[in-house]
Design a protein around this nucleic acid. Sequence first.
DNA 1: GTTATTGCAAAGCGTTTGCATACCA
DNA 2: TGGTATGCAAACGCTTTGCAATAAC
Lengths: 146, 146
Amino acid sequence: MTEAAARSGSRTVRRILGEHSLRATPGRMRILEQLRVAPHPLSAAELRARIGGVRPDLATVYRTLDRFVAVGIARTVFVDPVVRRFEIAGDHHHHLTCTACRRITPLPVCAIERMEEIARTEHGFEVDDHVLELFGTCQECRTTRR
Amino acid sequence: MTEAAARSGSRTVRRILGEHSLRATPGRMRILEQLRVAPHPLSAAELRARIGGVRPDLATVYRTLDRFVAVGIARTVFVDPVVRRFEIAGDHHHHLTCTACRRITPLPVCAIERMEEIARTEHGFEVDDHVLELFGTCQECRTTRR
DNA sequence: GTTATTGCAAAGCGTTTGCATACCA
DNA sequence: TGGTATGCAAACGCTTTGCAATAAC
């Protein structure tokens, strides 16, 4: 990366944090930087490992990611029952998780039949199962005053 | 439940285990029974709690559920980042997870737009997010000999 | 200067594993 | 009877938390 690019990335990251009223600490900035350039959803430990130099503590990574999720900068990805994974909350998309090698590939499409076709034709990925869960609020929770 | 129904359920459970070459031990049978009558995906601890009398050890529940998943009797449901949930591997379906009360409701439909419509009209559930992950084998894993 | 954030260390919690015992086929 | 399943207890790995020190605004 050129120095100019790094400076511009730093500005962007600062701006994003500011827009969400989060203090721009060095650790946070570097965590957000990694989240932005990650090729696929990362666990907290993986994300930390990608940070060069003096890395923030794992606890800080978790706290920061929770914060990011809370304000909508990041999102949790459910593909692994043992590790929680995070990704930047940008365009809505899904993933191809290989059950053999566990590789995770982002898939920028979302109509299910169409997705399976694209997985096959463009990624040579044979879909044999999928997980689709809907989240929202049930009637009861919407009508009950809090 | 009547005695006759219990006897018939026991026979069914025995048959299912037999069909998968799994020994019909009391613990296994009771775990499978609970899995069959569960109204929604259960964690190992929740499932164990539903067993009356002398319950099998939690470790046994885990081992048994893993076994069930391996042979295709059960399936893992990804809706919670901290607990693994299991359900009987019957008809393909999905779930409505309320982000407020965490209640999980099965939804026996699977074309996404249609699902959202049914969630709204038949369950009064307002979908505002969903998880859709595809599983299968990538090209590389399929072409590499093992 | 105030308040939020961090590192460190310890605790927490769901899940897995080793091993001796008990059991099904 | 031989291989499998179980209970118990300890280990494990990911994640969270308390607290004093530090840094952002």
